[in-house]
Design a binder for these strands. Structure first.
Length: 115
DNA sequence: AAGTTGACTATTT
DNA sequence: AAAATAGCCAACT
């Protein structure tokens, strides 16, 4: 596994997503140091999801919606249930309001906190 | 080894 | 607006 450490970076990023928040593949990719490689995020999660401590459930697509997959653990509704259990609210369209639930990494230094 | 696929995203038709 | 096309790159066949 040549880029195993890159995957580690992806996993690490996903792990840092707090409960009740979500992140898009592109966002995770960028934070993981893989700009433009959103597909790899999904692929990475695909292989690590089962038996993993990684909150893959908090990773959604750019629309704030859950991406389906024929290989899911069982059904696509499972992920939605997990997110709802964390306090994430879905719209009638089955989408998440990214304007509210998008995870914002604490990259701001503790010297100029304003919140 | 070469070709296809994919838990994506953005652009163009 | 929905569907098709293009760009992306690692994994799979």
């Amino acid at each position: 596994m040549p880029d195993e450490r890159l995957y580690e970076r992806i996993y690490a990023t996903v792990r840092q997503i707090p409960a009740g928040k979500v992140a898009t593949y592109g966002q995770v990719a960028h934070l993981a140091g893989l700009p433009g490689r959103a597909r790899q995020i999904g692929y990475a999660l695909f292989r690590v999801a089962p038996g993993s401590e990684i909150p893959w459930q908090r990773v959604v697509n750019a629309r704030g919606e859950i991406s389906e997959s024929p290989h899911r653990l069982g059904n696509d509704d499972y992920q939605r249930t997990l997110l709802v259990a964390e306090g994430v609210i879905f719209n009638q369209q089955g989408q998440i309001d990214l304007a509210v639930y998008r995870w914002q990494p604490a990259s701001a230094p503790p010297s100029a906190e304003s919140e």
